[in-house]
Amino acid sequence: MMGLSRRRLLALGSGLVAGAVVPARAQGRPFHVFAVQWRGATDVDRGMKDYLARAGVEVRYTERNARQDHKALAAIVAEIKRERPDLVYVFATEAALGIAGPVDGDPALYVTDIPVVFAAVGDPLSARLVHDLRKPGRNATGVMHLAPVSVQFEAMLSLFAAKRMAVMYNAAETYGRGAVEQLREVAARAGVELAVDTPLADDGKPRIELIGPTLARLAATRPDVLYLPSTSFFIPLAKPLTEQAVALGLPTFSANEPMIRSGDAMAGLVASFYEVGQFAGYKIEQILRGGKHPEQVPVESLSRFSLLINMRVSRRLRVYPPITMLRYAEIIDAH
Rank of each mutant, 00 (worst) to 15 (best):
P23I: 10
A100K: 06
R84S: 12
H32T: 12
G40I: 06
D104L: 10
P115G: 05
F91A: 11
E94W: 00
I80C: 09
L146R: 12
Y51K: 02
R138Q: 08
V44E: 06
H131T: 06
V57W: 05
F91M: 08
E83L: 13
A74E: 15
V33S: 07
R138H: 12
V117K: 03
A72M: 11
Y51E: 03
R60T: 10
A41I: 13
Y51V: 03
R64I: 10
V33G: 03
D86K: 05
V121K: 00
V22S: 07
R60H: 13
F31S: 08
S14M: 11
D69P: 03
F118D: 02
G105V: 04
R82T: 14
S126I: 00
F91V: 13
A41Y: 08
E58I: 02
Y110T: 14
L133P: 02
H32D: 14
F118A: 06
R128M: 11
V103Q: 08
G56Y: 00
G98P: 09
Q27I: 08
D45E: 15
L125G: 08
A96P: 07
D50R: 13
G98N: 07
I99W: 02
R64W: 04
H32E: 14
G98E: 10
H131F: 11
L129S: 04
P107K: 14
E79C: 00
A72Y: 06
P115N: 08
M144L: 06
V88P: 04
R128S: 12
T141N: 03
A72Q: 15
A53H: 11
P102D: 11
R39Y: 13
A18C: 01
F31I: 03
R67N: 14
R138M: 08
P107Y: 12
R25H: 15
A18K: 10
L52K: 12
P85M: 10
V33P: 04
G142W: 02
E58F: 00
T141Q: 05
P115Q: 09
R54F: 05
G28D: 09
P30L: 10
V17H: 09
V103F: 04
V57R: 03
A55G: 00
G13K: 08
H32C: 08
T62P: 00
E83F: 01
I76E: 02
V21I: 12
A66L: 06
E94F: 01
G13H: 12
F118C: 02
A96G: 05
D106I: 07
V17L: 12
V116L: 05
A55K: 09
L97F: 04
T62K: 11
R82W: 06
A24M: 07
Y89P: 02
D123H: 01
V22E: 14
A92L: 10
R67G: 01
T93K: 01
Q27H: 13
N65H: 10
A108W: 07
F118Y: 10
A92W: 10
D132C: 03
L52W: 10
A72V: 08
A35V: 09
V77Q: 04
N139A: 09
N65D: 15
I99C: 02
D113F: 00
V143D: 05
A127F: 04
V44Q: 11
V17W: 06
L109D: 15
A100P: 02
V22L: 15
A100W: 01
A108K: 15
V22P: 05
R39S: 14
R54W: 05
A95K: 04
D86Q: 02
V21W: 05
A95Y: 03
R84T: 10
V22N: 06
A100I: 01
S14E: 14
F31P: 00
D132V: 08
